[in-house]
Design a protein around this nucleic acid. Sequence first.
DNA 1: CGTTGACGTTTCAAGCTTAAAGTTTTAACC
DNA 2: GGTTAAAACTTTAAGCTTGAAACGTCAACG
Lengths: 166, 166
Amino acid sequence: MATAIQTDEEGPVRSPGGSAANPSLRLWLRLLSCTTIAEKRLRRRLAEQFDTTLPRFDVLAALEREPAGLAMSELSQRLLVSNGNVTAVVQQLARLGHVSVSKPEHDRRSSIVSMTDQGRAHFDMVAREHHGWIEQMFAGVRAADRDQLYALLAVVRTSLDQSEEC
Amino acid sequence: MATAIQTDEEGPVRSPGGSAANPSLRLWLRLLSCTTIAEKRLRRRLAEQFDTTLPRFDVLAALEREPAGLAMSELSQRLLVSNGNVTAVVQQLARLGHVSVSKPEHDRRSSIVSMTDQGRAHFDMVAREHHGWIEQMFAGVRAADRDQLYALLAVVRTSLDQSEEC
DNA sequence: CGTTGACGTTTCAAGCTTAAAGTTTTAACC
DNA sequence: GGTTAAAACTTTAAGCTTGAAACGTCAACG
């Protein structure tokens, strides 16, 4: 449950007194509903058209620009998920032949994950479509609005980072 | 894996040619990273401070304003999740005594889910904190920026809805 | 009354996700 | 060389999530 309420202006809210009395909550619900709708659509299409999943796509996207591969913990940090999650998804990708996992000589605790040729072929194909889906979803947003949103979300991001240290 | 890249300006992107060449993709990644960071924080705090989960909170939030309760499929629609998911979460909440499930006389296919007194007491306590967490996360966003973001996200939402019909 | 299609929910298999425990390895220290 | 704490990853249990199949129920129709 991605915590998205179907109609954030009219639906139930997570606070006594309703979201009309709480603009931050309203903003949060709208942010969440936009992201959830887009994400579920991407997930559905990846499954239907390429028989893959968003987490697998994310791992390949992270590896795409790293010919030397990445360590498991580096993947975990970049993708903002737990080590255990990375382990499971990488194992799936290895089973599919899309990545290979090796142990560096200098530190046998580590594992280095690299994209295989097969993985790259798959990723290139999927990424092209993914790219188009994103364009399509944001097609109704004017360039000026898009750029302004981008800037405003940087403010949100800063606010989030600062509030974490409280 | 919530598909959030840690540093969307610098990190790997899901498209050949990089996100710098693709402002919609950059916007998407930033939208996603902001939402993911906030969501994971809420999930973590709900688990640590109240021993509950975001989906359970969502169900209670949906029920909070419905003294007569809601049908399972109504919950599914409002929360934008599958019927199967609602079944599992409601069963957990029933086990905890936070909701009760009854069968209406007029349609024995349906189940009506209502919040119990115990559930309401729990929800009121949690919602108060949740409210404060949201305020804190968005504290660094000026009111004018927040309102503008809210309006711009409505444009995004419309774009998403329109592109679905393609 | 029997048939049939649709409804509403539950069950299922598969994948994702977390936090914590477990295991192996490394490196600092004495 | 032995001890110890930390690193890096894997495993585990628990919860969430989807889409489809299964099941019981409802209502329209002949």
